[in-house]
């Protein structure tokens, strides 16, 4: 009888432990995340422009490595860095919001520079937006 109670207690503790871990599970580490796609900013923007629904199915929530020329670098008043890559369109680009959980110390890209960023594709508004980006 004692053994049974003991076993139940251990199971309950293990369950609580797993639950607690799940509840506090960390965000994906973007520096270590493997990119499922490697595309140019032009190609990524182009596929959203051509068929948004299909592009959503392909890229949404996926880790995408996107390469291109920096058009604009901006920092909002919370210090969050965003980099817009040229898409071939005059008005719109591929906006990469840099990851808040990663240290970007010493990373200060300039317009005109070519670079590759890796982030999660969230879809297209007017620009294609990637969040949680890190440099590659």
């Amino acid at each position: 009888m004692k053994k049974v109670i003991f076993a139940v207690l251990i199971l309950a503790a293990a369950g609580a432990g797993i639950g607690y871990y799940q509840f506090n599970k960390p965000h994906q580490n973007m520096e270590r995340a493997a990119a499922e796609f490697s595309v140019s900013a032009e190609a990524l923007f182009g596929s959203f422009e051509a068929d948004e629904q299909q592009a959503n199915e392909e890229y949404l929530d996926k880790v995408v490595a996107v390469s291109g020329t920096v058009r604009e670098v901006s920092k909002d008043n919370n210090g969050q860095l965003s980099i817009t890559l040229d898409s071939g369109s005059d008005m719109f680009g591929v906006i990469c919001q840099m990851d808040e959980l990663t240290d970007h110390e010493g990373f200060s890209p300039e317009p005109g520079q070519k670079l590759t960023l890796k982030g999660k594709c969230t879809g297209m508004l007017m620009d294609v937006v990637l969040v949680r980006c890190v440099k590659m």
């Binding site: 506090n24 599970k25 960390p26 965000h27 994906q28 808040e100 297209m124």
Partner: peptide
């Protein structure tokens, strides 16, 4: 974009 909302907890 809904997926661009960032939460403190991943879950």
């Amino acid at each position: 974009l809904i997926k661009a909302f960032q939460f403190e907890k991943a879950l």
